[in-house]
Amino acid sequence: MYYDIVFHFDKGIDELNITISNIKNYYTGLPKENFKAVLVVNGPGIKLMGKESSFSPDLKKLHEKGLNIRVCNNAMIHFNLKSEWLNPVCHIVPAGLLELVDLQRKGFVYIKP
């Protein structure tokens, strides 16, 4: 089977807790499968991606499992956030929405917790 997946996060703390839980459950549910998992963050959700965020430990652990975390440069600019502020496991992409479109065109299943 084909299990590549993209999780989309763009809200607040409660939604990020759900998103992280969903991602953990995905990895737990597919221990023997080879898949790509991506988290795309845009909008106000970007404000929770700082290296000092309480979510940093969870994001680091998921990144170590293979989660690719991509954050929207447009959101970074909109909220006046600098790359030095960002969690180092995050990768800046030009536009989160375009990233979502591109991944879906490549066959990734879209999940918005």
Rank of each mutant, 00 (worst) to 15 (best):
A95I: 06
F79K: 08
L39V: 07
V38G: 00
Y26C: 07
N73S: 06
L16D: 05
K82Y: 03
E99K: 12
H63I: 03
K60T: 15
L67F: 13
M76D: 01
T19W: 01
N25R: 09
N17R: 14
K51I: 02
E52L: 08
V40A: 13
T19N: 03
V93F: 03
K65L: 11
F55V: 07
K51G: 03
K112E: 15
L30Q: 13
N87D: 14
L16Q: 01
L16H: 02
L98Q: 10
L62Q: 00
Y26L: 15
N34I: 08
I20Q: 11
S54I: 11
D4A: 03
G107L: 04
I46P: 01
Y2Q: 15
I77W: 04
E84Q: 08
L100E: 04
P57R: 06
Q104R: 08
K60E: 14
S21R: 13
I20S: 02
F9G: 00
S56M: 08
M49L: 05
E84T: 06
K106D: 12
F35P: 03
L39I: 04
K36C: 13
F7I: 00
V40R: 00
L67D: 05
D14F: 12
G43F: 09
P57F: 13
Q104D: 10
V6N: 03
K24Y: 11
N34F: 12
E84L: 06
M76L: 15
K61W: 05
I18Y: 08
W85A: 13
P57V: 09
P88E: 15
P113H: 07
G107K: 01
I18N: 10
L67C: 04
C90Q: 08
G50S: 12
N42P: 01
G107R: 11
I77G: 05
L48E: 10
D10I: 03
I46L: 04
A95G: 05
V101K: 08
S21L: 15
Y27R: 11
F7L: 02
C90A: 14
N22T: 02
N25I: 00
I13Q: 07
L97M: 15
N80H: 14
Y3E: 13
K51W: 04
N25C: 00
N17V: 09
K106C: 13
S83T: 04
V38Q: 01
P57D: 02
K112G: 06
M76S: 02
I46F: 01
G43E: 05
W85E: 13
G43R: 00
N25E: 11
M1S: 13
I20P: 06
S83K: 07
G12D: 14
N73L: 07
N74Q: 06
